[in-house]
């Protein structure tokens, strides 16, 4: 048992002009995560506190928030890693709807724009699967692990400064489909990916990959998209005959 001081950003648009911090002293179990502490606050101290959560196992992606300034999943931010006062804020770079709840419309719209679904290269076989070897699977598998928690957007200064930037997760997911042996849709995705506000907005801070709770490595995906787009350009301009 340990008493933890939580400093939580509060904002209710109906009663507050702007956000402010509120302190809660919470009796916590040693093995708790920040989410457990928030749930304890909600249940016993302050039912008006709003935040999103569901699975408590780092797979639904609901509970992304800033914990002591770093983007974290609250269900995987262990209290034992934070000795002093723990400051909890909504994910950076997203508008605050209420308390720890952010408006994520921007990401959801961008995800749809990159066509994150299979655009089949060949017609699907009758009553059988596309063959895909373990090596072909591994080629893209890492990028399928994105849980859309948006910690990468909160870590990315480019996204903070240039909100039009497509951003790490959306690019990584588009790249996931581009690398899938069953997919033939790269050209259709290039319009968004190769645009100025696509991969080229990235200046390779690398923060997205550092904070990703699923080790997706969006920074890697973005650089790979840049290299492929560069090759595209050279092929189109210097070797036009190679282009189909």
């Amino acid at each position: 048992m340990r008493q933890v001081e939580l400093e939580v950003l509060r904002y209710n648009p109906e009663t507050d002009r702007e956000p402010h911090f509120q302190r809660y002293a919470v009796d916590c179990q040693e093995e708790w995560v920040v989410l457990d502490a928030l749930n304890h606050v909600k249940e016993t101290l302050d039912p008006t506190l709003s935040y999103r959560w569901s699975c408590h196992m780092a797979v639904c992606g609901s509970c992304g928030m800033m914990v002591n300034g770093e983007p974290k999943l609250a269900c995987k931010a262990f209290l034992r890693d934070y000795p002093g006062v723990i400051r909890v804020e909504p994910l950076r770079h997203f508008p605050v709807e209420r308390d720890l709840v952010t408006v994520i419309d921007d990401f959801v719209a961008k995800l749809a724009r990159v066509k994150p679904y299979l655009i089949p290269k060949d017609k699907a076989p009758e009553a059988a699967e596309f063959r895909q070897t373990p090596a072909q699977l591994k080629r893209y598998k890492q990028f399928t692990l994105c849980i859309n928690c948006m910690l990468c957007y909160a870590a990315c200064p480019e996204y903070g400064l240039i909100p039009k930037y497509l951003g790490p997760a959306a690019i990584a997911l588009a790249h996931r489909w581009n690398r899938d042996s069953r997919d033939g849709g790269r050209d259709a995705r290039q319009e968004e990916l190769a645009a100025t506000e696509g991969a080229w907005e990235c200046s390779f801070v690398g923060a997205c990959s550092e904070v990703c709770p699923e080790h997706v490595d969006p920074a890697g995906a973005i650089q790979q998209v840049k290299i492929e787009s560069t090759v595209d350009w050279y092929q189109a301009h210097l070797m036009p005959w190679t282009k189909k």
Partner: peptide, 22 residues
């Protein structure tokens, strides 16, 4: 089986055998 194959045709990353079958 039809539904699981449909999901495969939509790109679900099923784990695979060495020969590429699910």
């Amino acid at each position: 089986p039809t539904e699981l194959l449909q999901l495969e045709h939509w790109g679900c990353p099923w784990s695979r055998e060495a020969d590429g079958s699910v």
